[in-house]
Design a protein around this nucleic acid. Structure first.
Lengths: 256, 256
DNA sequence: CAATGTCTTTGATCTGGATCAAACCGCCAA
DNA sequence: TTGGCGGTTTGATCCAGATCAAAGACATTG
């Protein structure tokens, strides 16, 4: 049985400043503009000196996207780099006939547009209300050029994403429906945990369709698998998310 | 009808020096050790000054792997970075029960291990005879640190790989068998073309099983699709590869 | 040259997940 | 209060691709 005594992440306010490649600093004064998003504050532990961090954050402006709002479309020229501070983004690609593959969900702390290329390689929109730090791409590149040690971090971030992408290829190419869902839930639990949130309740802002388009399934199949896991008491479906009741069982199904 | 007059890439010798992040320089004296691999020489056009290039190449030693030889396994500690100069590598991940997902095929000019991380995130083995330049990972990192502009190239290479990975997710998650094969062939044609090879004949060193494990299919399905395309004269199966007879038709099937 | 192993092709059958269809469940707006 | 809307669940049916099976095509080796 899972650790039900875990405190659910609920009321921690969001940072108004960018996490510098995985790290963040919170400014309480800005927290009020963003409702609870399930992420605890993380103390400063940055790749940047305090003075650099100040300069870095000065480059950004805070922006808010409403649920379903589109940040940009695949092929748009990449004016901005974003750092999510609150909420969830979906990044996706479309085939000409409308089939969609969600290549990733971004949570607080994640960057969009780190490739620094001329054009966005995917589309992005907000699943729930999202707040983010927006950097002008040119300014961001200049700053990185002036602080070359940041490039190492940038490169690390990119290769980490690549590793995730490769893991997802295994999931898409070689796993059965139930394994896909189990592996996804475990991965999500890991990410939330690292963000300091709950290890038990997973707030799923995305719909069954989103899940399906991420896992290479249909929404009906996702729904059936979730129902089955709930019937077996492996998970418990709650409003706006689900609770992992038997992580061991989930790992057994989604073992990697 | 496709351009049948295209000269097939056959006899061009391979470089004995690393391509510096996409560019290469050939040294005729070393070419003899490697049989034809379908890749034309590319003139020097490097991110490095001549003197740096010299230093860079001095870091590497030439290594040769026989067909089916394993370079490293997932989880091994990453002692080396490789630059393929001839032949084809497959990079793959295994599930505990033996299911395999090939995350990529590497052709001449491609680097392995650019993530510079402590451990390899996948396994790699040679499909045919492969020659490569081998860099000690520590030396490579030191060199990059001394030449920070190279980090930009490194980062570009990583994000390019990430883009390819995301495209492959679309293929794995949302495409039908025939589309998968068509898209793969077109992508391979593009890569070979960029390498200066033939646009018509695609030398497939990999088996049907390899293809299947890359595309998320079974070998039988791959075989059937290839047979079907051949029956329709879209492609022509030849020893050790195939010819694209009707690229338009292929694009129509595998449109992205 | 037969024997053996590896890879490929092709056919017959099966099945996991897609597709089609309908009901259900808040939630919001009229 | 009702109706519409977006999302979810559940059932019935279908089918693309998996699985099972066998034979063919080459190399390599004894």
């Amino acid at each position: 049985m899972a650790d039900l005594n875990d405190v659910d992440a609920t009321g921690s306010p969001c940072s108004g400043e960018a996490r510098v490649l995985g790290q963040t600093r919170c400014r309480a004064a800005q927290a009020a503009s963003c409702d609870s998003c399930g992420v605890k504050d993380v103390s400063v532990c940055s790749a940047l000196e305090a003075v650099e961090l100040e300069a870095f954050n000065a480059l950004s402006e805070k922006v808010i996207f409403r649920s379903k709002e589109t940040l940009f479309l695949q092929g748009d020229d990449a004016r901005a780099v974003y750092n999510v501070t609150c909420g969830t983004l979906r990044l996706y690609k479309l085939l000409p006939d409308g089939r969609r593959q969600i290549v990733g969900f971004l949570l607080p702390g994640d960057f969009v547009g780190l490739s620094l290329s001329e054009r966005y390689g995917f589309s992005a929109d907000a699943i729930d209300q999202v707040s983010a730090c927006r950097f002008d791409r040119g300014d961001f590149i200049d700053f990185v050029d002036r602080n070359p040690h940041l490039l190492r971090r940038l490169h690390q971030a990119a290769t980490h994403e690549l590793t995730l992408a490769q893991d997802h290829m295994v999931l898409l190419g070689r796993r059965a429906a139930e394994e896909k869902v189990a592996a996804f839930l475990l991965a999500m639990r890991g990410r939330l945990r690292r963000l300091g949130g709950s290890a038990v309740t997973i707030p799923l802002a995305m719909t069954r369709q989103d899940l399906a388009d991420h896992l290479g399934l249909t929404l009906e199949t996702v729904s059936r698998v979730v129902s089955k896991l709930a019937r077996e008491k492996t998970i418990l479906v709650v409003p706006d998310g689900l609770r992992i009741m038997d992580a061991g069982r989930l790992e057994q199904i989604g073992a990697s």
